[in-house]
Write a protein that binds this DNA or RNA. Structure first.
Length: 789
DNA sequence: AAAAAAT
């Protein structure tokens, strides 16, 4: 069952496989029903500790093989999915694309021909190995472009195809259909797409179209953004009142004061904030200056809004009118926030709500469509016990209560003395208290919860260890698979040192091995919500004996779409289980969970670990949208490791391809890649085989890659927290780093607001292609301004 | 928009 002699890379995973190549049970059935046929994950196996499900791999391989064979002229009945390996026949009939295929069918390869296929991951993998000479621009480029194109194209095409395909082929369906196969038909499509990437047939007509289409899309994308930006900007303007946030800032700082503030705060805030809202009154404030323009707009608008809005929400009016309103916030928030649903729970916590509200109103007025992103709110800070760094000086991990084996392991991992956050949380966790921990990105949070967690479990289960089939005693949840993997890499050695076992439970890979590990018995589960819940529901994961639950990036896990599964999972843990919530941006957004699951939590944050003490140099380049692509290419053409953030998966893919086309080796990381590819691409960046990684926010939180000295935000983030996390990918462990954000003129205000919320100072500089500033920021031309230089 | 299960 091992791999059928196929090299691991062998099975190509289509870049976007999972999603676009969705197969349904239907497919499997027709295809010969191999489970997992669609799953690409072979590579994962490699990384996994345990042997993978070989069965799966082999199946896959076969499948894919078939797929290949099939492609040429095959017609596969069911779907055209390449994987299903339908031989001839089926495809064509059902697909509209069929014909072309047949035509092509004669010749296995069409336009795509070898290259294209090669382009497929498979070929790619092989080549890659064969020729390390990727570097060559031409070569490299070809490979990559093919690859990416194939995959990348898929998506766009997908959409397109559908659209066009439907149109064009509407007739066909019937033809094909010929039998009420439509159902199939649809099912096929997805594959179809995938096939396409592989299959030449479409290519000509479509490929051309597609590409152009894609381009269009891209462009559109760009347009949209700009559009959004505009909107946003507007929003911003109006929001000015929204900016009340700053007051919020103030609050944050005085965070501790909150308690007292309680009531005061509001009043307090009002004073401060009001200024913002009522800038006129507060003219004195510095902020106003920044927002010079806004104030006016805002003021005007806000009021305006009120008048108009009264109908909408009384709340806003409230807010704006008096701070008193603030008191009302709760309602306010709710009402306004309805959209933000998630926050509903935490509404009260949000202080900025009111401020933002105005903006919304404005927003709504102006843009009825309201498809803009949710507001970027600064939640109240949690009351926290501030830990001063000096307090932990001279303290050792052993002093904190960790056993010698663990201390030794930590030492081997390079953690010789506890960081402040660790010094604070470890004792409390060992005491069994619920803990909320906030530490700057890269401040050692994983060990802060991982080490004491292992110690606690060890202590609690002394005597009955390693019982076969024992249920896990602890679970650690993370928002992304990569982060779950990374956490395991830190926690596993610690656990192993005392005889405890960990296992990763996350999606995108076959369940087999994970379930197998659970059957053998593990002590600590580390995973992502989806698969964890899935296995719980399948009865394969029993958390009833789970006495410690950790949420990393807790605030993110409390966002809409994430919090519900998390809540359900936590409810499966042992009653009264200890809960540990960690994040660099921990705030009251986690209130929903805190209220339900935590008992008298200890809250810690580290003094002085704010952005001011950061080793990161923040810069903002104000550019023309049309120069964006070239400026980006110019900036990533450098020596150090560069991480580029894009807002969408498609744009991330496009940029990576663009860089490759320019002869700059680059890989992408986003949710449209199959897990094998995600893992592989991240590995390439980590190992230094490529120095440019283009990612979506999947890589924004927690992911640690050594030596990233430049983070470029091709798309400015919508939330200040996102900015902070993205920026946190560099400047780790006290090293210097730089974050460059590209924005258009229209976005300046909004960006300014965001930076204020994040409490980050960053100069805005206009830049055009070829400007020295770009050379400088890329590190090609050190200058005085170059702090890191 | 993205992420998180799978079929």
């Amino acid at each position: 069952m091992p791999k059928n002699g196929k090299p691991k890379g062998g099975r190509p995973s289509r870049n976007f496989e999972p999603r676009y190549a969705k197969k349904t049970s239907f497919h499997d059935r027709h295809a010969g029903g191999r489970p997992g046929a669609g799953r690409p994950d072979r590579d994962n196996r490699d990384e996994r500790t345990d042997a993978g499900d070989r069965g799966f791999s082999s199946d896959r391989s076969r499948t894919s093989d078939r797929g290949f064979d099939r492609r040429p002229g095959s017609k596969s009945p069911s779907t055209g999915s390449g994987q299903a390996g339908q031989r001839p026949g089926s495809r064509s009939p059902s697909h509209r694309g069929y014909r072309p295929a047949e035509a092509d069918g004669g010749a296995p390869k069409r336009r795509w021909t070898d290259q294209e296929r090669a382009g497929r991951d498979e070929a790619r993998g092989i080549r890659g190995r064969a020729a390390s000479g990727r570097r060559e621009a031409p070569h490299h480029r070809d490979e990559r472009s093919q690859d990416s194109r194939g995959s990348y194209g898929e998506r766009p095409r997908y959409g397109n195809d559908r659209a066009t395909g439907d149109r064009r082929y509407e007739d066909r369906p019937r033809r094909d259909e010929r039998g009420g196969e439509r159902p199939r038909f649809q099912g096929d499509r997805p594959r179809f797409h995938s096939d396409r990437s592989e299959s030449p047939r479409y290519n000509d007509d479509r490929s051309g179209d597609r590409r152009s289409f894609n381009n269009d899309r891209n462009d559109r994308g760009g347009d949209r953004r700009s559009f959004n930006n505009d909107r946003n900007d507007r929003g911003g303007d109006r929001r000015s009142s929204g900016r009340d946030d700053r007051p919020a800032r103030d609050d944050r700082r005085s965070f501790n004061d909150r308690n007292e503030r309680g009531g005061d705060r509001r009043s307090f805030n009002r004073d401060a904030r009001p200024a913002r809202d009522d800038r006129p009154a507060r003219d004195g404030r510095p902020f106003t200056n920044d927002r010079n323009e806004r104030p006016r707009h805002n003021e005007d608008r806000p009021r305006f809004d009120r008048d108009e809005r009264p109908a909408r929400d009384d709340r806003r009016p409230f807010t704006r009118d008096d701070r008193t309103r603030r008191d009302d916030r709760p309602r306010f928030d709710r009402d306004d926030r309805p959209r933000r649903d998630d926050r509903g729970a935490t509404d009260r916590a949000r202080r900025d709500d009111r401020a933002q509200l105005p903006s919304r109103d404005d927003w709504n007025k102006q843009a009825p469509a309201r498809f803009e992103p949710t507001e970027d709110v600064v939640h109240e800070r949690l009351e926290a016990q501030v830990v001063a760094a000096p307090e932990v000086e001279g303290t050792t991990f052993a002093d904190l209560g960790l056993g010698s084996n663990i201390v030794e392991t930590l030492k081997n991992m390079g953690a010789t003395a506890p960081f402040p956050i660790q010094g604070a949380t470890i004792p409390s966790i060992l005491e069994g208290r619920d803990v909320l921990g906030r530490g700057r990105t890269g401040s050692g949070k994983t060990i802060a919860f991982g080490a004491p967690l292992v110690e606690s479990i060890l202590t609690s289960q002394a005597g009955k260890r390693r019982e076969i089939g024992r249920a896990p005693r602890a679970i650690i949840l993370a928002p992304t698979r990569e982060l779950a993997l990374q956490i395991d890499r830190t926690v596993q050695p610690i656990a192993r040192s005392v005889g405890l076992f960990t296992t990763q439970i996350y999606g995108g890979v076959p369940q087999g091995r994970q379930v197998g590990a659970l059957k053998k018995g593990v002590d600590i589960v580390i995973g992502t919500p989806g698969r964890v819940e899935d296995l719980i529901n399948q009865g394969k994961l029993d958390l009833s004996d789970c006495r410690i639950a950790v949420l990393d990036e807790a605030d993110h896990m409390c966002e809409l779409g994430f919090v519900e599964p998390v809540q359900r999972i936590l409810r499966h843990t042992q009653e009264g289980s200890q809960k540990l919530l960690f994040s660099a941006t921990l705030d009251r957004e986690v209130a929903a969970l805190v209220d339900e699951f935590l008992v008298d939590p200890a809250v810690y944050e580290v003094a002085g670990e704010d952005q001011d003490s950061s080793t990161i140099d923040h810069r903002v380049l104000v550019i023309d949208h049309r120069d964006k692509a070239e400026i980006l290419t110019s900036m990533v053409d450098r020596d150090g490791k560069t991480l580029v953030f894009a807002r969408t998966r498609a744009y991330a893919e496009m940029l990576a391809e663009q860089f490759e086309d320019a002869g700059i080796p680059a890989v992408s990381l986003h949710g449209d890649l199959n897990q094998a590819k995600r893992t592989r691409n991240l590995q390439k960046m980590t190992s230094g085989r490529v120095n440019v990684l283009v990612a979506t926010d999947v890589a924004a939180r927690g992911i640690h890659v050594d030596d990233i000295d430049l983070v470029i935000q091709a798309d400015a983030p919508d939330e200040y927290k996102t900015y902070m996390h993205r920026a946190g990918r560099t400047g780790r462990a006290g090293r210097s780093g730089r974050v460059v954000t590209l924005i258009t003129r229209q976005r300046q205000r909004r960006m300014n607001e965001l930076l204020e919320r994040a409490e980050i100072d960053a100069p805005f500089e206009p830049a055009r292609l070829g400007d020295d500033v770009i050379e400088e920021l890329a590190g090609r031309m050190p200058s005085d301004a170059d702090l890191t230089a």
